[in-house]
Amino acid sequence: MSVLSDEDSSPLLTVDELAAEAGLTVRTLRYYASMGLVPPAVRRGRVALYGRDHAARLGLVRALQDHGFTMSAIEKAMARIPASAGVEDLAVQRAVLTSWAPAGPEVLDRRQLDDRAGRALDEEQVALLIETGVLERVGRTYSPLPGFEMSIELLDVEVPADGIREAADAIERHMGALTDELTEILRRRVLEPYRAIPRTDEQSDRLEVTMQRLRALTLQAVVSGFQRATNAVISRSLR
Rank of each mutant, 00 (worst) to 15 (best):
S2L: 07
L4P: 01
E7S: 11
D8Y: 04
S9P: 03
S10D: 09
P11D: 06
L13N: 03
L13R: 13
L13C: 04
T14G: 07
E17H: 10
L18C: 01
A20H: 08
E21W: 12
A22E: 12
V26P: 00
V26Q: 11
L29G: 06
L29E: 06
Y31D: 05
A33D: 03
S34M: 09
G36C: 08
L37S: 04
P39H: 07
V42G: 02
R43H: 13
R44N: 12
G45E: 01
A48G: 10
L49P: 15
L49I: 07
L49D: 08
Y50S: 13
G51K: 04
R52G: 12
D53G: 06
H54E: 09
A55Y: 07
A55F: 05
L64W: 03
Q65F: 00
H67D: 04
G68I: 00
G68V: 00
S72V: 10
K76E: 11
A77I: 07
A77S: 09
A79Y: 00
A79N: 01
R80W: 09
A83T: 14
A83W: 00
S84P: 03
S84K: 06
V87F: 04
V87A: 14
V87E: 15
D89A: 13
D89T: 12
L90T: 10
L90M: 06
L90V: 12
L97P: 01
A101I: 06
P102D: 12
G104R: 14
D109F: 08
R110M: 02
Q112A: 14
Q112K: 03
Q112C: 01
L113T: 07
A117M: 13
G118F: 14
G118P: 07
R119H: 05
A120N: 02
D122H: 05
T132E: 02
T132H: 02
L135S: 02
L135A: 02
R137Q: 15
R137G: 07
V138I: 09
V138G: 06
G139E: 00
T141W: 00
P144Y: 03
P146A: 01
G147E: 05
F148G: 01
M150Y: 08
V157N: 02
E158S: 05
P160I: 01
I164F: 14
E166M: 12
A167S: 07
A168F: 06
D169K: 14
A170V: 10
I171F: 15
E172M: 11
R173F: 11
M175N: 14
G176P: 02
G176Y: 03
G176K: 09
A177Y: 12
L178C: 08
D180I: 07
E181A: 15
E181L: 13
E192M: 04
P193H: 02
P193S: 07
P193K: 04
A196W: 00
I197V: 15
P198W: 04
T200V: 12
E202I: 06
S204V: 07
V209D: 09
T210H: 13
T210P: 04
M211E: 00
R215Y: 05
A216R: 12
Q220C: 07
A221R: 11
V223W: 11
S224M: 13
S224W: 10
F226A: 13
A229C: 03
A229I: 01
T230F: 08
T230V: 10
I234Q: 06
L238M: 10
